[in-house]
Design a protein around this nucleic acid. Structure first.
Lengths: 110, 110
DNA sequence: TACCATGCTTTGACTTTCTAGGCATACTCG
DNA sequence: CGAGTATGCCTAGAAAGTCAAAGCATGGTA
């Protein structure tokens, strides 16, 4: 299928997840909601994208997870940013800034 | 392997190619050089990424190609932006701007 | 002659994301 | 009590894009 306008670009999802979790431990479903809210309804992450990403990110040691009971009395797996995750977030943000800058340079070339 | 800092994000390459070609018809090898220059040496597109992308983009009708002889007396396939390509470039730039904005919003959330 | 820069192409692997489901539990409302 | 809805996690399969690493050919130069 053709890529939809709202779709994420490969490589940005990890940064967004890490950023969302950096504001406090959160479970998967909540991450989707928080990202939607943080982006002003501009981003809608699919569950089928999020959960594999969370697994991947946890394997890399950037988040840790714990089963807990949330505020509505349901079991949910809460993810928290690790120290390595914070470093990774900073790295990814720096890379993102570089890319945005590089593309801006290309675009302003006449 | 881990993604390198300088790597492109999937989905941005088409926009960059279209932009490079929008400044005048150019062959593949030259596109790489022009993009490197336009980005202030920040972007280095691999040949193995560029040529498949050019093929894809031509299939979609966003560029047309013609074998010609370049200024150094070598045969080279020159790509030119089509009308549809210009529209596509505008669309991709708008999508890019939206994504950059959305991510900026996420990042400025405290 | 040998080499180097230019120029196009292909192959295979890899990663990420999306679509499209399935499964389970808590709560609410008729 | 029963049905529906929102919440919450997970997986399989496919699609797509990018990269690394090659190969091949030609023109100019030492």
């Amino acid at each position: 299928m053709t890529r939809q306008k709202a779709d994420l670009l490969q490589g940005t999802l990890d940064m967004l997840i890490l950023k969302a979790v950096s504001l406090g431990p959160l479970h998967g479903y909540g991450i989707i909601q928080r990202l939607r809210q943080m982006s002003g309804e501009m981003l809608e992450v699919e569950q089928g994208s999020l959960y594999p990403a969370l697994y991947r990110i946890e394997q890399k040691g950037w988040v840790s997870s714990k089963w807990e009971v949330n505020e509505t009395n349901r079991r949910a797996k809460f993810y928290a940013l690790t120290r390595a995750g914070r470093r990774q977030l900073e790295d990814e943000e720096a890379s993102w800034d570089r890319l945005v800058l590089a593309i801006a340079k290309v675009r302003q070339t006449t």
